[in-house]
Nucleic acid binder design. Structure first.
Lengths: 350, 350
DNA sequence: ACACATTTCGTGTGCGCACACAAAAAAATA
DNA sequence: TATTTTTTTGTGTGCGCACACGAAATGTGT
């Protein structure tokens, strides 16, 4: 493999000049540029990426702002792990990653944590934008400082985010309907259970429901779809009564759709007599949800490559910072259909 | 990221000494060794692989030996692309990748191509071991020369391969049965169509069939499973008559299972009258197969992350060569369930 | 002709590490 | 204690590239 030095000798110029034409830095006379370019082409020369990476030694910092994961909802653990793994990978480019988590129930926590991250003067942001208004506020600050940002997992419109990494929630909901529908009859009813919080805050949940309903519309099916809202602060006992009495009143319900990662909580509430007769479908391969799959209480889980979401977001941003690669505006990751048998193979980080 | 220099300062020793303990070069007193090791551990330090590669002037070469992809079976295109992508990535470590393809119908081609690769004295091999006996021969040579090798996609036992990267074919077949069974009745029959070649040569096909049958056994279902073998050298007309007349003779067949990536060829042969009444399931997201999904002639495809298989195999081997990371002996990639709606999101390489 | 601005080019330094070699310290011997 | 041997540690150089800085060449105006 030729080196810049050798090219320079061959062209009777200095290494600096070769460097200039290689990177179009200008300040090279037409004549010598031609000469050098000819030799570069003749030897089909390209820089040694190893040496290049070492010499560049960037010092970029990416800030990641995502929700915490708690016992009742482990979802964000995977994206976090993905971010950590990617952080390891981009180290070789001299890029550092600072991750901070916020409380998904509290907009103040979201803002606070953002400002904490901002203080370290990061070169870029990865954000899971749980709250619309607060995100607007954040984005204003970022754009004033010319800091690029990528949205993670939650797709909201009307911003100049460099990219969105996540799932096509509408289609995911549509698929949920398609999977669960054959397991029921024409006369069956479906129940959508959601927590009130999610309606306003989480766009993904809303889109999933739309997609779910759209399946029946599009295929001209007359299935009746009911909705039950529960408060996230409800005690377990309250939830139990709410859900079971609702099921009692509507004996035709054959399928239950939970458009969030909390299906294990719903399963926990439904009494066995109903559970056995119902087909349930929910989202995300959290440990608790996987357990529901294994116990046959849940038929399907739709998963959204949570690990990859975190991993890709960081990698994309790093490529943007380091190599100036502009990512696609939307990166839709696979819509994984998980059943008892394939769930164990679904996400490994080796 | 800490550097050797910083570790040295921290330990009040020279960089050379840190280097010595890092690489167990010896010639370091017990006391200082402990001290340095403690600090290394405390900072969780590891050498910058890029700088290391540069200093070492690493010149690892990984040889990849995989089947060609032709018009009738595009499957191997994806692993090939994955290998190419990974090749790009590992360049920064000074690792080169040489890929050569062989004719999957001809064992001689397999051996020949291997020897061609071997001549370039690669440091490691990635092999899709299509033929058992020839693989034995190859492995003998590799082990004599102490060249590590990873098996790709085709899982065969009894070798000292560093790792296997692919899919759990048995479970994949099992899942195929689980997916297609609900779409039929108890009295229905299933048909497995395979090409004779595959029976002897391709272990994955065999395992998929086993898994498929096992589903009915395990769930004590009385479904009748028939098998039809077609010769790969048959003309299209011959195949058509064979298949259609078989379907004619067995009107109870409601599902067709094709345990290879050739389901589009089968679809091509079945006449419309049968096609509409049948549920088909096959493997792999080749463009032609995807088209069958979109046209609703095929209900499901099981996919095996072909791109990732190639990508991961190279990356694992590179990590082994460069950082001495020993991979898991088996890397089972996800068993993807593809339907019309989620197939477009399934594999992107950005 | 001169002084000066502008373009074009060469040189030097550092990125983090590996490794050869020199130096110092410790141990062994006389 | 002086001298030699062995063990332990420090220093210097190069891997190939990027980039800042300064030197040389060329151009401009008076």
């Amino acid at each position: 493999m030729k080196t810049i030095k050798e090219i320079a000798q061959e062209a009777h110029v200095s290494e600096g000049t070769v460097d200039r034409v290689l990177h179009n830095r200008g300040g090279v006379s037409k004549k010598t540029e031609e000469k050098v370019k000819a030799i570069i082409k003749a030897y089909n020369f390209s820089v040694n990426p190893v040496a290049s990476a070492l010499a560049l030694k960037n010092k970029f910092t990416i800030a990641a702002l995502i929700p915490v994961n708690n016992k009742s909802d482990l979802f964000w653990k995977s994206p976090h792990l993905g971010i950590t793994k990617a952080a390891e990978d981009v180290k070789t480019f001299g890029t550092q990653v600072h991750t901070q988590t916020y409380n998904q129930q509290k907009p103040e926590s979201y803002l606070e944590t953002f400002h904490k991250l901002l203080k370290e003067q990061p070169s870029a942001f990865i954000i899971a934008p749980s709250f619309y208004n607060e995100t607007k506020e954040i984005v204003t600050i970022l754009e004033a400082q010319n800091i690029p940002y990528i949205f993670l997992n939650i797709e909201i419109e009307g911003f100049n985010n460099l990219s969105f990494v996540g799932q096509d929630s509408f289609t995911a909901g549509y698929i949920a309907a398609k999977l669960i529908q054959p397991k029921t009859l024409e006369t069956s009813q479906f129940l959508i259970i959601q927590s009130r919080k999610n309606i306003t805050s989480n766009n993904a949940v809303f889109k999933r429901i739309e997609g779910f309903k759209n399946y029946f519309l599009k295929n001209k099916m007359s299935h009746n779809i009911l909705t039950l809202e529960i408060e996230s602060q409800d005690s377990k006992a309250t939830r139990q009564t709410k859900i079971n009495s609702f099921l009692n009143e509507h004996p035709n319900i054959k399928g239950v759709f939970v458009p969030s990662s909390r299906i294990h909580m719903i399963v926990d509430c439904i009494s066995d007599q109903y559970l056995n007769a119902l087909e349930l479908i929910g989202f995300d391969n959290t440990p608790q949800n996987i357990e529901c799959l294994m116990h046959d209480s849940v038929s399907f889980l739709i998963s959204q490559k949570p690990f990859d979401q975190g991993y890709n977001a960081i990698k994309l941003m790093n490529d943007y910072l380091v190599k100036n690669v502009i990512p696609n505006h939307k990166i839709y990751l696979p819509i994984d259909i998980l059943i008892k048998e394939n769930v164990i193979y679904n996400e490994n980080s080796y």
